[in-house]
Amino acid sequence: MPHPDSDSAGAVEAVLTTWLYGRLADAKSLNPVFCDEVARLLAVFVLRGGKRLRAFILLVGMARRGPIRRIPGCPVRP
């Protein structure tokens, strides 16, 4: 994983990719059709989106989730 001090964009993308694919696995276990038709497309959209769009979606998702907590494997502290 890139170090956040030298490649912050790469570090965010690595953590985001890991997190999104983990959620896709959760979605597939609950509802494979939803995963294939909605969740997977959203994950691809977020990962391929522009720099500002990814950051905005990440911030909105974190705000909706509640208090910030440490993400396992993430080198950045909240």
Rank of each mutant, 00 (worst) to 15 (best):
G10P: 02
A11K: 05
V12K: 08
V12T: 10
E13Y: 08
E13D: 12
E13V: 12
E13S: 06
E13N: 11
A14W: 14
A14T: 13
V15H: 01
V15I: 15
V15Q: 05
V15C: 08
L16S: 04
L16D: 01
L16H: 01
L16V: 05
L16N: 01
T17Q: 03
T17H: 04
T17E: 06
T18L: 09
T18Q: 11
T18F: 07
T18V: 09
T18E: 12
T18W: 07
T18P: 00
W19F: 14
W19A: 14
W19T: 15
W19E: 09
W19G: 02
W19C: 08
L20I: 10
L20K: 02
L20S: 03
Y21N: 11
Y21E: 11
Y21L: 05
Y21G: 00
Y21W: 10
G22E: 08
R23V: 09
R23D: 03
R23F: 08
R23Y: 09
L24K: 03
L24C: 03
L24N: 03
L24Q: 05
L24P: 01
L24G: 02
A25S: 13
A25M: 07
A25I: 10
D26R: 15
D26K: 15
A27E: 09
A27V: 10
K28L: 11
K28D: 10
K28H: 14
S29P: 01
S29R: 15
N31G: 08
N31A: 13
P32L: 10
P32I: 12
P32A: 11
V33W: 09
V33R: 14
F34S: 04
C35R: 13
C35W: 06
C35K: 14
C35Y: 10
D36F: 09
D36C: 04
D36W: 08
E37C: 06
E37L: 13
E37R: 13
V38Q: 08
V38P: 00
V38K: 10
A39M: 11
A39T: 07
R40Q: 10
R40P: 00
R40I: 02
L41F: 11
L41K: 15
L41P: 00
L41M: 07
L41W: 07
L42K: 07
A43D: 02
A43T: 07
A43Y: 03
V44S: 04
V44G: 01
F45Y: 11
F45P: 00
F45D: 14
V46I: 14
V46A: 04
L47T: 01
L47I: 02
L47G: 01
L47H: 02
R48Q: 11
R48M: 02
R48D: 07
R48W: 00
G49W: 02
G49C: 09
G50C: 02
K51H: 10
K51Y: 09
R52K: 12
R52L: 10
R52C: 01
R52Q: 09
L53E: 09
L53R: 05
L53C: 03
L53F: 13
R54F: 01
R54V: 05
A55P: 00
A55L: 14
A55V: 15
A55Y: 07
F56S: 08
F56I: 04
I57Q: 01
L58A: 14
L58V: 15
L58K: 03
L59T: 04
L59C: 07
L59R: 13
V60W: 07
V60D: 00
G61E: 04
G61P: 01
G61A: 08
G61N: 04
G61L: 05
G61V: 07
G61T: 06
G61D: 02
M62W: 03
M62P: 00
M62E: 06
M62R: 13
M62D: 05
